[in-house]
Design a binder for these strands. Structure first.
Lengths: 259, 259
DNA sequence: CGCGCGGTTGACAATGATCAAAAAAGGTGG
DNA sequence: CCACCTTTTTTGATCATTGTCAACCGCGCG
């Protein structure tokens, strides 16, 4: 494994050096570090900064590039005829964006940066050509597609929760798990998205998200301050998350019922 | 385009002949007919019958095969710790199953046949190897991943509908559109899944699905008899499907409000 | 024939959407 | 730095939608 950490290019460095990221780094970020090799080291992709609230691509636009989130975060959305926006999910470091354009070669969703972010731009045509000689690239695309499908499945699970408080609890746990997998804290979350975005994604009114958060805070499961959430009692939150219906007054009650 | 129809292998024929399907046929079924060539004609995959209610693969199982639905239909489900089942979606002819296992090489969902069905079994390892020489196979995988993502996005859109009647309306329209794309009727549907499965997928109680269906029937939008649904007034259903909240008494009212 | 499963319908309680308003935060320009 | 604006978030009150419980029907099957 010849010290992969030493070879990982730090994002911060890239702000000064020419904005390029090697395919190896993309593989590592996507969780396929074991496939990084000299071939993929040699391939470089441009890094593109995306300011907060900027649109990376919009639904219907022909597929030119796929993107890998280098830093920051994004929301994916679908817009129906009336312009009503449906939030499909949120993308963090290492997540690929634009995979749903692989069928039809037009983006099936839009992506908007939630904060100042950066993405690696992967030109699809070149990627396709290069993937014939560098199998790791082909694997990258398949892996990314599978990962995105799993995230969508998780989101569907969130949305199907019978009570809104459970939905929000699941949402927080899901986000915490993803952050933890990135080496960040699994207890302290900064919600980069608005309550409205969360509500939209969960299929509830945004006031309900607000109420659910204060409810969970009053039960002692979490602490909420603006967009910072601390998961105080993971166990209680996890027990609550499984419940079918009806809120729970306190974290201890949640444990009592679950026992 | 040398008369592709003549070269398409009919499903019925396969019941007698050795159970093999060419890669070209899979490409055509998946909507990539233009990529079919002599190379892909030469590759054959086994056809596997799946009786009603049989499980094709289960969550957690190592990925051995990907599947393409040849006939019949399937539901994809996720099971949480307690065994509670979450229906993620339904697969029809030409849909690929198992794509979410491409990340982690374990199935992230289970697939169950809703009726007597048949699938083309695509051994993943061989597929990966062959795709280096036959680009069409690589494209097939990417295309299928994108298609599955789009279907999941549509499902999320269904689930996010604010009223249960709208959810069901969208569900019916979605299914009708897919059936129409397969050359079948876009007006007459046979719901292969139980009401409970629909409800689970939409995130509502199964009684609510029942009520929504009779409600839509009484408004004159659809006709319902057991599992056969006829879309009588597509326009009204489509108008209703866009509404944000509140049912509509009659199909004419739906049009009046929409006007 | 009885049984189980899937589906429908009714009654009731309650979750959550809606409307309304105000407080808090963030950004902008002077 | 402050005033001012917009956006975001919170909280309250009310009521409809919908989940839950329950009974019933129709159908297929052993």
């Amino acid at each position: 494994m010849n010290t992969p950490a030493a070879r990982v290019t730090r994002i911060e460095d890239r702000r000064r050096t020419p904005a390029q990221v090697s395919a190896s780094d993309v593989l590592r970020w996507a969780g396929l570090g074991e496939l990084a090799d000299p071939d993929s080291d040699a391939i470089e992709f441009p890094l593109r900064r995306v300011p907060a609230l900027a649109t990376l691509y919009v639904e219907g636009q022909p597929l030119q590039q796929l993107y890998c989130v280098a830093s920051g975060s994004f929301k994916s959305t679908q817009n129906d005829v009336e312009g009503y926006e449906q939030v499909l999910g949120f993308a963090l470091h290492g997540d690929m964006l634009g995979m749903d354009a692989l069928c039809g070669h037009r983006h099936a969703s839009s992506a908007v940066a939630l904060e100042d972010s950066a993405v690696v731009a992967l030109p699809f045509a070149e990627l396709l050509a290069a993937s014939r000689e560098v199998p790791a690239l082909a694997r990258l695309l398949l892996h990314a597609g599978g990962a995105e499908l799993q995230r969508r499945g998780d989101t569907q699970y969130l949305m199907a929760a019978p009570s809104s408080e459970v939905r929000v609890a699941r949402f927080l746990l899901h986000l915490a798990r993803r952050q933890a997998a990135l080496g960040q804290s699994g207890r302290r979350l900064r919600l980069r998205m608005t309550r409205r975005d969360i509500a939209n994604c969960l299929g509830v009114a945004h006031e309900t998200v607000s109420r659910a958060l204060t409810g969970l805070a009053q039960s002692g499961c979490i602490g909420v301050s603006h967009r910072d959430v601390e998961i105080v009692d993971v166990g209680a939150l996890h027990d609550l998350q499984r419940m079918t219906r009806g809120g729970v007054a306190t974290a201890q009650e949640a444990r009592a019922i679950a026992a």
